[in-house]
């Protein structure tokens, strides 16, 4: 089947089998390998991307389901060569070690912060239910997300 969608602001199209997963389309056909696959039961969250503005597990969506949608992956998060505040905060607060869960973590957190710009630590930890990390013990991930939230609130205020 022929599908078309917008990925990271760019119109793309491709030929896929109905059984092709969105993550397979992104990785194998578009070469966007920042989105990872860490499990086969839709729980680890390494594959989280945004579909039409909300976070989704790209391993639990068929590529054909995203036909006509707008998809953002980790590669599309930085704008104009400037890191997204979450990317910056993960770096500054050592919110990553091996880096494998990181794209999904950041994409998931970005969805949280667009819904809740001022989450508590508890809310951050609950939101990350669908993202597993084996390296960091979550401590610095949570710290980074809270720091990014603060930065983004400051930016929003400055823009007013």
């Amino acid at each position: 089947m022929r599908i078309s969608m917008t990925v990271n602001g760019r119109a793309v199209s491709g030929e896929v089998e109905p059984r092709t997963l969105l993550v397979e389309f992104l990785r194998n056909q578009l070469g966007l390998t920042g989105t990872h696959v860490g499990c086969d039961t839709s729980q680890c969250g390494c594959c989280v991307v945004h579909v039409d503005g909300v976070s989704a597990k790209s391993c639990t969506m068929l590529a054909v389901q995203a036909d006509g949608c707008s998809v953002t992956t980790i590669e599309g998060l930085a704008q104009g060569g400037k890191l997204h505040p979450l990317q910056q905060a993960f770096h500054e607060h050592h919110g990553l070690q091996c880096g494998f869960c990181t794209p999904g973590m950041i994409m998931s957190a970005a969805d949280l912060l667009q819904r809740n710009p001022d989450p508590t630590e508890h809310e951050v930890r609950e939101w990350l239910e669908g993202n597993l990390c084996r390296c960091t013990g979550y401590h610095n991930i949570v710290k980074a997300i809270l720091a990014a939230a603060q930065t983004m609130r400051g930016m929003a205020k400055a823009a007013e």
């Binding site: 989280v48 976070s55 989704a56 239910e129 669908g130």
Partner: peptide, 9 residues
């Protein structure tokens, strides 16, 4: 239910 991404879909 589930996690945020499951709830989104």
């Amino acid at each position: 239910i589930g996690d945020p991404q499951v709830r989104n879909r």
